[in-house]
Structure formats: structure tokens, C-alpha cells
């Protein structure tokens, strides 16, 4: 029974109570994924499973056998940051930095959802194939990630700068 974390196969825990979050933080010593509520209410524990964003605190690790998990540590490290991580620094998209890994993983999952054309609560035309990358769309789609320091504007700025050009290009191509 293994699970892939940031490219490496690791064993699943024997205790089925262990959440994916605690597996990462306590067993694998990957504390970049944060615990903010342990009840699915804050988004700090967001990771990517096969590219899709989920909450690792509500995920029992055993459910994810054979799946591929990417955490913040797998995205980039100081000296070799992911463009979105660098944009967060540039736009001051954080203060204390605790919700930040979750915000970044969530935004990367979100970008893929937008590329796929998944609508949101604020999408006015559900039948449309493409999603306009408005600030409202970004704000609604990121609402599952709480930030108490109030870095919301910087977070949306960083995301918009990182992903908007690509989406604009995609729209232009259609």
C-alpha cells in the first residue's frame, strides 16, 4: 500500500484514522501543508491529488492508495520557486504565511479547473465553454481558503498575474 508524494512512493499508515494531512506533517515531515482547523473549514491543508485540489484534513490517507499527491514542497523551494510562489512574494499575497501554502496549492488546482471550463457560483452563463478570468471569478473560486491577516488583495493579484495571460491566450486561440 503506497501513495506517491511529490514524486516519491511512500507507505500508507497502518492506522486508518491518520488523515492525509497528518501523514504529510507528522510521518513524512512535510509541514508545509498546514493545519488550521482540521474540520474542512479553512483550506490551509489544501494539496493537489492527481492535479486536483482537495482538503487533506478531511481525507483519510488510506483512501488515497496509488494516488499522486503534490504539496507545497513539491511546487518549489527558495531559489527555485514556482512562478505563482514568486508572484505571491512580489504582490505580498500573505502576511503570517500560515494559510499561504494552501492558497497557492488551491490556486494551482483552480487554474486547471478554469482551463477545463468548470463554472463557478458567479459564472453568469453556465453554457459557456470558457471562463472569463475576472476578479470575481478568482475571488469566488478562492473562497475556500481563509486568510485572517487580510492578504486577500495580494493573493488575487498574484494569481491574476500568474494565470491571466495564459487564459487570455487560450481565449484568443479559440
Amino acid at each position: 500500500m503506497t501513495i506517491t508524494v511529490n514524486g516519491a512512493a511512500v507507505s500508507l499508515p497502518n492506522d486508518p484514522r491518520v488523515s492525509l494531512l497528518d501523514l504529510l506533517r507528522e510521518d513524512l515531515h512535510l509541514p508545509g501543508t498546514k493545519k488550521g482547523c482540521n474540520q474542512g473549514a479553512c483550506g490551509a491543508c489544501t494539496v493537489l491529488v492527481d492535479g486536483e485540489r482537495i482538503l487533506s484534513c478531511l481525507a483519510l490517507a488510506v483512501q488515497f492508495e496509488g494516488r499522486s499527491v503534490t504539496t507545497i514542497e513539491g511546487l518549489g523551494m527558495p531559489g527555485a520557486l514556482h512562478p505563482l510562489q514568486a508572484a505571491f512574494v512580489e504582490h505580498d499575497g500573505f502576511q503570517c504565511g500560515y494559510c499561504t501554502p494552501g492558497q497557492i496549492c488551491s490556486a494551482i488546482g483552480m487554474a486547471e479547473e478554469i482551463r477545463r471550463g468548470v463554472p463557478s457560483h458567479v459564472t453568469s452563463d453556465l453554457s459557456s465553454e470558457t471562463i472569463a478570468l475576472s476578479r470575481d471569478e478568482l475571488r469566488e473560486r478562492m473562497s475556500g481558503n481563509l486568510c485572517r491577516c487580510g492578504a486577500h488583495n495580494g493573493i488575487i493579484d498574484a494569481i491574476a498575474e500568474t494565470f491571466a495571460p495564459k487564459t487570455a491566450l487560450a481565449e484568443a486561440a479559440e
Binding site: G43, E52, R53, I54, L55, G109, E113, H121, G144
Partner: peptide, 16 residues
């Protein structure tokens, strides 16, 4: 139905 689902929870939770 789409609208109801999209009004609920968060994207991460809807993915799970």
C-alpha cells in the same frame, strides 16, 4: 442543479 452544487461548500470540498 449546477448552480446549487456550485453554491455549496468550497471547490476543494466539491472535488472530494
Amino acid at each position: 442543479l449546477s448552480r446549487a452544487i456550485l453554491a455549496g461548500a468550497s471547490a476543494q470540498i466539491r472535488n472530494m
